[in-house]
């Protein structure tokens, strides 16, 4: 399969995603410049983390207007698989591909640390090699990861099993103090109704080998590979 990592000005996890796909998983992968007008031939797109356009405005608010996003939309409508990580998730929200919005972290600070998340739905292509309730150890690194949606949207997300990850304790409970950023209902990642677009705040590309603290990110990429 062929992967594309979209590079917005200010993306800074693009190299990390590329490295993991190319060297850890021996995948065919290319960078896609934000002005690109043709996305033929790709099976999965990654919108990587970073600070697109410096994020001086709302996170992702400018990147969503990049030329490439028109093509990303067509790609999504064709059923292509899209993974937005951190800033990528924020861009997907701004672009309206996923419902809800990001607020500043509850403590108003940037937070970089390992957290544990619980898999809530193993149906989508991003989690099909895991099982519901599995706990993953992954780092977060963001200023604006406090997910918010109105009540109706949240009900719909829950009804359709669109919540894919929740911040949890190591033994799989989701109390408030397992929530690092104040996110609604401990939400760490959601997908669209069709299940082909995932946005997540934790960084699976940062935990691919033991020496980096965890290998739990592998299963996300492996699941995608297994489903294409």
């Amino acid at each position: 399969m062929k992967w594309g990592v979209i590079v917005f000005p200010g993306s800074n996890c693009d190299h990390d995603c590329y490295w993991v796909l190319k060297h850890s998983f021996n995948q065919e992968v290319e960078y896609i410049w934000h002005k690109e007008t043709n996305l033929a031939g790709y099976d999965c797109l990654i919108l990587p983390g970073g600070f697109s356009y410096g994020d001086y405005l709302r996170t992702g608010a400018i990147a969503r207007f990049s030329r490439v996003m028109l093509e990303v939309e067509k790609f999504a409508n064709r059923g292509g698989i899209i993974l937005g990580i951190c800033n990528g998730f924020q861009i997907l929200l701004e672009a309206g591909f996923l419902p809800g919005a990001m607020l500043r972290n509850k403590n108003l600070n940037f937070i970089c640390k390992y957290v544990t998340i619980r898999v809530e739905n193993e149906q989508p292509p991003f989690t099909n090699l895991t099982s519901k309730g599995r706990i993953l150890n992954m780092p977060i690194a963001h200023m604006d990861g406090n997910y918010y949606a109105d009540k109706a949207t949240l009900e719909e997300l829950n009804r359709n099993n669109q919540v894919i990850f929740r911040y949890s304790t190591k033994d799989g409970r989701c109390p408030v103090d397992a929530n690092p950023n104040g996110s609604l209902d401990n939400i760490a990642g959601i997908c669209n109704r069709e299940g082909n677009i995932l946005g997540m705040m934790p960084h699976p590309e940062r935990c691919i080998e033991k020496q980096l603290g965890s290998e739990d990110g592998r299963v996300i990429f492996e699941s995608i590979m297994a489903s294409v």
């Binding site: 996890c13 990390d16 983390g49 940037f110 970089c112 690194a141 940062r206 980096l212």
Partner: peptide, 9 residues
């Protein structure tokens, strides 16, 4: 924890 100390992996 306020510094991204993991980017670039």
């Amino acid at each position: 924890e306020q510094y991204d100390h993991m980017v670039q992996t």
